[in-house]
Design a protein around this nucleic acid. Structure first.
Length: 426
DNA sequence: TCTGGGGTCCTAGGACCC
DNA sequence: TCTGGGGTCCTAGGACCC
């Protein structure tokens, strides 16, 4: 029988902030999205105050102040590095694993003896070595492991580890009856509404529904979930991450822009970020897309548009991409709007080796790409960039007023420990 | 004043072919 | 008077995830 574990970091971003600043312990703490826009992570104390996920900062600022909550900008360099540490500890214990997201991993526990004990040890080790607390759920399918993880966290007596696969079908149903169907992996806002209308409100209601009927009424996804909840695994472990099919790079601006020049810079910047990801994955792109939009929440009239361009053959040429993006932007830009966001997309990705040309040929886009990659690897991201992008950090840059240092990935930001001598008073 | 960013998969419908 | 059926491929949009 297949057995899966889901290992999931608790309040991941908030926990990362805490590791390096013990003063934040036991206090309500929230982490903001890019541009300091809305809440994307909360400590347990912040959750207890009823601060909702995704809440816009400007709507709950008063409430945060009243409760003396700590507010932090997001620091992805820090979270990414902490994530790699956690994942490597998991991999040492459970080599058949899949990094599912920055704070979650699935692992194959099939045939592992004493899996409950092993899970408890792993959990303790992660906490001791990184300061991050995880929950571990075990089940006969990925969806079941997800639910077990929910139980592990929600019912404290389980001490962060729960095994649904070990239970009899009737014991499992007792748990399922207590849990809202919205906790099922893959059941989102829209489906909830429809399921509720049909009288399906608990996990058990869904698990007991007729699979092929539900497939007809909803989709193959719902059918698959029903099987998964009943212990029939339909979603495999992906130990090797599949090749990306598309690459995005976009940002909201620090404030709205009405002229095209700063937007050109932003687009050039996003093209370079997309290009970096493209090179890192050793891919070339067949299609470039550009989009711009105004603020959808504003009273002002809304404008959003996008345009695409396909190349005769897949390319890695940063200059070609930048030029093309510039032309696309010209087709999109309209005067008299206040733009708040722009971005680029790369589609039709293909492995670069399939059409790699002579590395030293003047016409070769891969030679240029390799050079850019080398220089930026040595001198830091963006050391070599297109002039279009500009050198000054400019008006389109995002706001990040409350960012912690990159403690673990930048020598300049290493944590300083101050020794207090007898002469100094407390 | 102020609302993130980056992905995947599925489905429906149109274009096109024989 | 009367105008098929079945298949593939592509794309846009919806829904979901973290």
């Amino acid at each position: 029988m297949t057995v899966f574990a889901l290992i999931d970091c608790n309040n991941f971003y908030a926990s990362c902030e805490r590791v390096f600043d013990p003063r934040l312990r036991d206090r309500p703490l929230v982490v903001l999205s890019n541009n300091d826009g809305c809440i994307i992570a909360r400590s347990a104390e912040a959750k207890a105050l009823g601060i909702p996920m995704g809440a816009p900062l400007h709507l709950i600022r008063d409430s945060l102040r009243r409760h003396k909550a700590i507010v932090r900008s997001s620091n992805y360099a820090l979270y990414g590095d902490m994530s790699r540490r956690v994942m490597s500890i998991i991999r040492d214990t459970l080599p058949r694993m899949e990094v599912y997201s920055v704070d979650e991993a699935f692992a194959d526990l099939s045939g592992v003896p004493e899996r409950q004990t092993l899970a408890c040890q792993l959990r303790a080790q992660i906490e001791q070595w990184t300061g991050i607390t995880v929950g571990i759920g075990i089940g006969s399918s990925k969806a079941m492991a997800k639910l077990a993880n929910h139980i592990a966290k929600k019912w404290p007596e389980n001490e962060g580890v729960f095994d649904l696969a070990i239970l009899s079908a009737s014991e499992r149903r007792q748990w399922y009856q207590q849990i809202d169907v919205s906790e099922v992996w893959g059941i989102g806002r829209r489906l909830i509404t429809r399921l509720r209308a049909q009288g399906i409100s608990t996990v058990d209601d869904l698990a007991q529904a007729h699979p092929s009927t539900m497939r007809r009424e909803y989709s193959v996804l719902v059918e698959r979930l029903i099987h998964e909840l009943n212990g029939i695994s339909c979603i495999e472990l992906e130990e090797v991450a599949p090749e990306r099919q598309q690459i995005f790079a976009s940002r909201s601006f620090g404030h709205s822009l009405s002229t095209i020049e700063p937007i050109r810079q932003a687009i050039a910047h996003h093209v370079r970020r997309g290009h970096e990801k493209l090179l890192a994955q050793k891919m070339a792109t067949a299609t470039l897309g550009v989009f711009i939009r105004t603020n959808p929440h504003s009273q002002h009239s809304y404008y959003s548009n996008q345009n695409y361009l396909s190349f005769t053959e897949p390319t890695q040429d940063l200059c070609l991409l930048t030029r093309s993006a510039n032309h696309l932007l010209d087709t999109l830009f309209r005067r008299d709007f206040r733009y708040t966001k722009a971005g680029i997309m790369l589609y039709g990705l293909e492995p670069a080796k399939h059409f790699q040309q002579d590395l030293f040929s003047a016409k070769s886009s891969s030679a240029q790409a390799a050079l850019i990659e080398q220089i930026n690897a040595r001198h830091g991201k963006g050391a070599l960039r297109t002039a279009r992008e500009g050198w000054q950090s400019s008006t389109w840059n995002m706001a990040q007023r409350r960012k912690t240092p990159a403690y673990t990935t930048d020598w300049q930001n290493l944590l300083k420990v101050h020794l207090i001598t007898n002469k100094e008073s407390f």
